[in-house]
Design a protein around this nucleic acid. Structure first.
Length: 480
RNA sequence: CCGGGUGUGGCGCAGCCGGUAGCGCGCUUGACUGGGGGUCAAGAGGCCGCAGGUUCAAAUCCUGUCACUCGGACCA
């Protein structure tokens, strides 16, 4: 499988994974740096990925009855402080507006790090009856968190995301919503981004500030580290009580509604790069790839080549494929390397010899596999290949995830396995935060989640850290 | 926030015991080429991160600051 190195500007991931990542996002022209730390430019090729994720999720949200809204950018300090766990979680990383023009403000305004408080404030005014429920809202926006260390897509001070916020009469309905939206994210990762994950619940120490429960999808990057790929939170009625959101139920009694929120950010783009990328650059999963197929005419000065290549492009476009042609006068070899560095899933070469034989050559980015396709079959065969690439990428990543997830019986085992092989470690756990702290201290890994698929330890299992009876299995790892 | 490294044309870098900026790639124009980053020729392009200071003179020395990067802490 070892391929020859084709792009000299990109550091090998085996040599320096962090540098590889930085090289990829800049060389593939996904990101640009601005003059302010942590504020990044999503260049057209990077933003197009986000637009494709947006289009997919926005469609799903609306199918499930959610409505898009736009809430304010600024949160008055008094509002932010109404829920104590929430403010304790976010206050350290808030940025504040203190002046309007030359006037110092009487109350400083927080640039939203997340919008729970704004939705709550709005609902406290607008929800009165059980007939007003549920509220199923979502917004696409950017939020601001004053992070200390920043990295493209992984940790921005300002980042793009969507935040869904819902309000329900019944607790079980809200819990169901929380689970449903996690499932929407899981499907997005599997079906759009070709990324495998471990779905699960966060331990109490790691849940969202103010949440009763936090669900997550944890993905594994190619350096073995974990990326929290999305979250879905159940709040119970804690926010409703803090913000005095009440409604009259069918019996005419005042009640507190139950609330959820869920989000997925441009961090997902970091995830797809670090899941699928190789030493020649990113490898775009076909269903989110801004360019799915690039057509490269060879010897386009020869009669008929340019025309045939454009006809091929139009056929692909008519088949609903995001296709592009490169008619620049760079050499074919230059173009091959260029689109590999951009991660375009499929390259179609068309030259005089192909035209003579009524075929073209298709080359897959993920594994370099070549296939000759009759030009007449292009509209049928190319979509099939794109699908095959999608499944091949998912399978490859899934094998990597499972090959790098190991079980351990004791903290010493966990430490030994992690330091030798990295990746995820699964152990039984007693439920105590002290044991999480100790695991972090001894083995340098933190709890990622309690996996849904395998939450309950075997009969008689004991906590890997303290040896007391276990209540859950936990997936541990080093996290981004 | 702590520690290491780095800021010089679009990119990668040299110049740094002071004397007014250079190389490779890329870019522009033209010709020949064209199935894995082609060849030749002629060109264009620089507030040396920013702000102070020392000096007759600063990319070079001093101070501060900003940004990038790697590691750590913090964070989701």
């Amino acid at each position: 499988m070892a391929k020859e190195k084709k792009v000299e500007q990109i550091t090998d991931m085996e040599r320096d994974f962090a540098q590889w990542y930085t090289d990829v996002v800049t060389r593939a022209e996904l990101i640009g740096y601005s003059g302010v730390k942590g504020f990044f430019i999503l260049r057209p090729y990077g933003y197009a990925i986000w637009e494709n994720i947006q289009a997919y999720l926005d469609g799903k949200f609306k199918e499930l009855g959610h409505e898009n809204v736009s809430m304010p950018l600024l949160i008055p300090e008094s509002l932010l402080q109404k829920e104590k766990d929430h403010v304790a979680g976010f206050a350290p990383e808030c940025a504040w507006v203190t002046f309007g023009g030359a006037e110092e403000l009487e109350e400083r305004l927080c640039i939203r790090p997340t919008s729970e408080t704004l939705f709550c404030d709005h609902w406290s005014d607008t929800v009165q009856s059980h007939r007003d429920l549920p509220k199923l809202y979502n917004q696409w926006c950017s939020v601001l968190r004053w992070e200390k260390s920043t990295r493209p897509f992984l940790r921005h001070r300002e980042f793009l995301w969507q935040e869904g916020h819902t309000l329900h009469a019944a607790a079980d309905e809200a819990i169901q919503e929380t689970e449903q939206m996690l499932e929407v994210y899981a499907e997005c990762y599997e079906n759009l981004l070709a990324m495998p994950f471990i779905k699960g619940r966060k331990t109490d120490s790691d849940k969202f500030a103010g949440a009763e429960r936090t669900y997550t999808c944890e993905c594994m990057m190619r350096d073995g580290k974990a990326l929290q790929a999305c979250t879905s939170h159940y709040f119970g009625d804690g926010f409703a009580r803090a913000f005095e959101i009440t409604y009259q139920d069918k019996e005419g009694k005042l009640a507190y509604p139950h609330q959820t929120s869920w989000g997925l950010s441009t961090r997902s783009i970091a995830g797809l790069i670090m899941t699928h990328g190789d030493n020649n650059g990113p490898v775009m999963p076909p269903r989110v790839a801004p360019i799915q197929v690039v057509v490269i005419p060879v010897a386009s000065h020869k009669p008929g080549v340019s025309e045939a290549a454009r006809a091929l492009l139009n056929t692909l476009k008519a088949a609903g494929i995001r296709a592009k042609i490169d008619e620049s006068d760079n050499s074919p070899g230059w173009k091959f390397a260029e689109y590999e560095m951009r991660g375009v899933p499929l390259r179609v070469e068309l030259g005089p010899r192909d035209i003579e034989m009524g075929k073209c050559v298709a080359v897959r980015r993920v594994d370099g596999a070549k296939e000759e396709i009759a030009i007449a079959d292009i509209a049928i065969r190319v979509p099939e290949i794109l699908d095959e690439i999608h499944y091949a990428m998912f399978e490859k990543a899934a094998r990597y995830l499972s090959a790098n997830t190991h079980s351990a019986a004791t903290i010493e085992d966990a430490q030994a396995i992690y330091s030798a092989r990295g990746g995820f470690i699964k152990t039984a756990w007693c439920g105590e935060e002290a044991c999480e702290d100790k695991m972090k201290e001894i083995a340098s890994i933190s709890s990622r989640c309690i996996p849904f698929d395998d939450a309950v330890p075997e009969r008689g299992a004991v906590c890997a850290v303290c040896g007391k009876p276990a209540v859950n299995n936990v997936i541990w790892g080093a996290a981004y």
